[in-house]
Design a protein around this nucleic acid. Sequence first.
DNA 1: GACCAGGCACATC
DNA 2: GATGTGCATGGT
Length: 210
Amino acid sequence: MNRLLEIYRRLYDAFGPQHWWPGETPFEIAVGAILTQNTNWGNVEKAIMNLKKENALSPEIIHKIKLSRLASLIRPAGYFNIKAKRLKAFISFLMNEYEGSLKRMKEEDTQILRLRLLRIHGIGPETADSIILYALEKPVFVVDAYTKRALSRHEFIEFNRTYEDFQKFFHSSLNRDVKLFNEYHALFVKLGKTYCRKKPICNGCPLEGV
DNA sequence: GACCAGGCACATC
DNA sequence: GATGTGCATGGT
């Protein structure tokens, strides 16, 4: 039995479907992926609400809006000066290379696109993969801090391995399935919020004894 | 008041 | 390649 599928089954049985990503459009998902960097999702929702309220949640508006104005709108998400620049950088890329269209971006070869996203200032591996998986619905596995904690605590792989090492671990033993990767990552986040935090609450953890 | 949250870039050794 | 630091709001 594939151990990673065993973990998936346990998480799914414990928590059920997670209905990710929370967002109405691919563009909103991509914006959320940048805003949620090291930040509680509730704060991101407030920032996105501000953008919607001002009718600013579109590539064209964010592209031309003043940096200081954008920063003040996304203030609740934290790191707002940095994230305003990161949003601008991503959207310049989207406008210049794909006519502001995520549908166009989706047509790009996945590996090429991933490398191009990683060259954008402020887009690292987790953000790039979140955009590819959740906004563009292409099968790459998203690794985050919760995933690393859970797998290292249960001695599957050392915490200090690289992002790519963790990702390969999943890619090499699971089918490249968008739905599976979507649910699996979301379940790791759920697990992390419930049990596998910096200060773990291991009692009752569904991964006990895997 | 301390600690944490769905990272990333940059400096320094 | 490894380690340390700045970025910042809001909930527990």
